[in-house]
Design a protein around this nucleic acid. Sequence first.
DNA 1: CTCTTGCGTTAGCGACGGCTTAAATTTGCG
DNA 2: CGCAAATTTAAGCCGTCGCTAACGCAAGAG
Lengths: 104, 104
Amino acid sequence: MDAALKALAEPRRREILRIVWNRELAASEIASHFDVTRSAISQHLSVLRQADLVAERREGTHRYYRARTETVAELRAFLDDYWTSGLGRLRVAAEAAERKKRGR
Amino acid sequence: MDAALKALAEPRRREILRIVWNRELAASEIASHFDVTRSAISQHLSVLRQADLVAERREGTHRYYRARTETVAELRAFLDDYWTSGLGRLRVAAEAAERKKRGR
DNA sequence: CTCTTGCGTTAGCGACGGCTTAAATTTGCG
DNA sequence: CGCAAATTTAAGCCGTCGCTAACGCAAGAG
């Protein structure tokens, strides 16, 4: 989840994700949408893949990418529950107490 | 929205936001939850404020902060609609055509 | 008005991130 | 095998980021 948020913090990666949201495209096809090098796009794809935001399918020399919409759904759930959850609040309180206990 | 995502990409800022999610706290009280300098927390608060993720209320020498839950709600809506919206897809296609047209 | 308290702000440092260029890797083809 | 195509990986540049230390500033206390 940490990786997904960090990945989406970059505008270009969001754009890439949107491009492959409902269709599968090869790396070079994705790169053709931008004015940066294919290498740069490849690195962005690597980040997106490590965050499970895209899936990669290899076919010959091509590598096709598509968005993993489930991960974005999980992120949505995270935004829904993370702060509002009672467990989360309890954990925060516990950590604060712990920190106070061991001096500061 | 860009600023909000970027702000939330930092774990410590998420923690801060969670701490002031349902209660209003002064800057120093927030800082006491962490092992970093108050200056660092102040800077984080500044980022959160510029992203409209927290609201600031001044009272004497104190500055109280609380989370602006509506902004997180907006972010949720963004995650819901941004990629799946037909308008978004059309825009992407238009941009691609435009780029192809003016060479590259 | 001075002193203290509570925070913000600035300068500077080390780490990280995105980009480019160049080299490496993988796959297909003759 | 030898070569070309698609893409990743490596090295290096430069801007940004989070942090600390030091200073600056507003507001109450005396």
